[in-house]
């Protein structure tokens, strides 16, 4: 029995070294680890609860925000807007919502944003990096962002909003929304589908659709973040649970081993006296 326990014992001793009494120290080390893992599990569980609540809210808000984005896309599709070939300048807006756990939530979109910012700036100058606070995004946020893009003085022919599209609780996908300049929209072949459009109306609509698409992309991002955070925390709790099981087993075995050894010592001592 002692031989079987030995590998596990050695591992734990390696963690807490310089202990004179091996078995006692091992037991103590294991119980300390057990306690810390249990605490971690408690933390991840409560984080999961928090993000589950946030996720339900984000999903509800996403449902309300969806028409903003889909309506704009539909307009471009119906009017068959195409990016102008004579204007190669492109605007990329990368929307991501992660702060604390970037690796878990949005590796693609974030690194894409960084890369874009670098490349854009070297070529044209004047890209923006946005920091959004703890609260879920509002339309005013999107409006401010759109305002900043419009006033940045960068004349783009076409462009893309890159964001994380929420698909289900466990998955999201990096996707993009199209952006066009006013000229591109005015030159669209099927613009006549829409009634009473003059350049003023189109300009106003372009501004509004930029803001609403940004809003939609932000909401999608926020929802993806919360859902993947929830999944990640759920996984972490599960892993901690497995670890606790293993540690409990090791702890019990070690305790048993200690008792057995003490008994052997006592009995053999008694036998030696006889």
């Amino acid at each position: 029995m002692l031989g079987r326990v030995a590998p596990g014992v050695c591992q734990v001793v390696a963690v807490v070294n310089h202990q004179p009494n091996r078995n006692m120290a091992t037991l103590k080390a294991i119980s300390i680890r057990l306690k810390s893992v249990k605490n971690i599990q408690k933390i991840t569980q409560s984080m999961k609860m928090v993000s589950a609540a946030k996720y339900t809210r984000a999903e509800r808000e996403l449902k309300a925000a969806r028409p903003y984005g889909e309506g704009s896309i539909l307009f471009y599709e119906r009017a068959e807007v195409a990016p102008p070939e004579d204007d190669p300048k492109q605007l990329y807006v990368a929307i991501t919502s992660d702060r604390a756990i970037p690796r878990l939530t949005t590796p693609n979109s974030r690194s894409f944003a960084r890369r874009c910012a670098r490349r854009r700036c070297r070529g044209e100058g004047g890209s923006y990096c946005e920091v959004i606070g703890r609260l879920p995004p509002t339309f005013s946020d999107a409006a401010k962002l759109a305002e900043a893009i419009l006033t940045s003085g960068y004349e783009f022919g076409s462009g893309k909003i890159v964001y994380n599209k929420f698909r289900s609780v466990v998955s999201y996908q990096q996707s993009d929304l199209p952006l066009y300049s006013q000229k591109a929209v005015q030159g669209a072949p099927k613009l006549a589908t829409y009634d009473s459009l003059d350049s003023d109306v189109i300009q106003s609509y372009m501004e509004f659709s930029l803001a609403s698409m940004l809003f939609y992309a932000m909401k999608e991002g926020a929802c993806s973040e919360q859902s993947s955070r929830m999944t990640a925390m759920d996984n972490a709790s599960k892993n901690a649970g497995e670890m606790i099981d293993k540690l409990t087993l090791t702890f019990n075995r070690t305790r048993q081993a200690v008792i057995t050894r003490e008994l052997i010592e006592i009995i053999s001592g008694a036998a030696a006296l006889d």
């Binding site: 700036c121 004047g126 946005e130 946020d141 401010k144």
Partner: peptide, 8 residues
Amino acid sequence: SHVRITPW
């Protein structure tokens, strides 16, 4: 609104 805009 809680946006901070930093030009790059």
